[in-house]
Amino acid sequence: MVEEQKAETPEPVLNVVSTSPHAHSGASVQRIMLDVVIALMPALAAAVWFFGWDALRLTLSCVIACVAIEALCRKAMGRDLGIGDLSAVVTGILLAFNLPPALPTWMAVVGCVFAVAIAKQLFGGIGYNPFNPALIGRVALLISFPVAMTKWSEWTIPSPIGIDALSTATPLGLAKTNVMSAGTLPYHFDGGTMLQLLMGDQNGCIGEVSALALFIGGAYMLWRKVISWHTPGCYLGTVAAFSCILWIVNPEKNLPPHFHLLAGGLMLGAIFMATDMVTSPVTRKGMMVFGVGCGVLTMVIRRWGGYPEGVSFAILLMNSITPLINRATAPRVFGHQRKNKEKAS
């Protein structure tokens, strides 16, 4: 009887044998990167709204350049092309978002070379780069072409005497120069200014201006579980707390916390750069340490540093100690005592 039934049923194709587990969550690197790209779309829309053609030009050229450079590098090293994981696309968009709108295309491409060829592929490609490639690209450009990298467009700023003025500096840059020269802040803040900053009607890199759009992207990534709240939460919280203290101590010279949160590259950095998986800690505790560290460094640079903005440097500095944070925050293994207790007993 058994024999007959065998003949009727199709022969099972037992061709794949592996170790357990034989089930998978379905997550993939490609899907994670795609989610990041989707999360960046609102910010791209805001960039195009405020900066027009320049935003599109920079984003497209950076994406194309990054993917091409990645493919070239992989080919030169005799490896798989590896562009299917979309990580080069993410790097391209993020780098573009960190550039001022008027930057020439060729300079952006130079940034892409730094980001992909030097910061990523020289270290072995995805997974092996110690520093965020897009930030390396931005910082390399900032140091190589300081003038072009700080050439902003014009925006309308509220003035304390009631006459609006045009400025060609970023809000943070303006604040810094004014505090340095005149010893006071250049403007006062009301709800309208805050709304302006939140929506993105300000000067800055193309992707960092609209806190709202970045926030929407962050919420999407949280929902998709691409990121957890730990890094951005601790980063933003630290900046808020730090600036709050400074503001209470001396409101004449220090910007209020809501301005610090909404201006500059903080939102972009906290939501998209500090959460880069490869270069940030793997443990929850580590992510919190990382976020707090980024927050403190950002505020120190903004308040006392030579640059008006410190997000890029803060994240890169914290990237460098990520392995140490991982080691220090390794969870206590189940069934083991904490190290110091072991020693005590």
Binding site: A27, V29, I32, D85, G124, G125, I126, G127, Y128, M277, V278, T279, S280, P281, V282, T283, R284, M287, N326, A330, P331, R332, V333, F334, G335
Partner: peptide, 18 residues
């Protein structure tokens, strides 16, 4: 494929390993 250090395994491990 290389590890991208997403930390999901660390969060999933019931023995709290890395």
């Amino acid at each position: 494929m290389p590890c991208i250090s997403c930390g999901r395994c660390v969060q999933a491990c019931p023995m709290y390993l890395m």
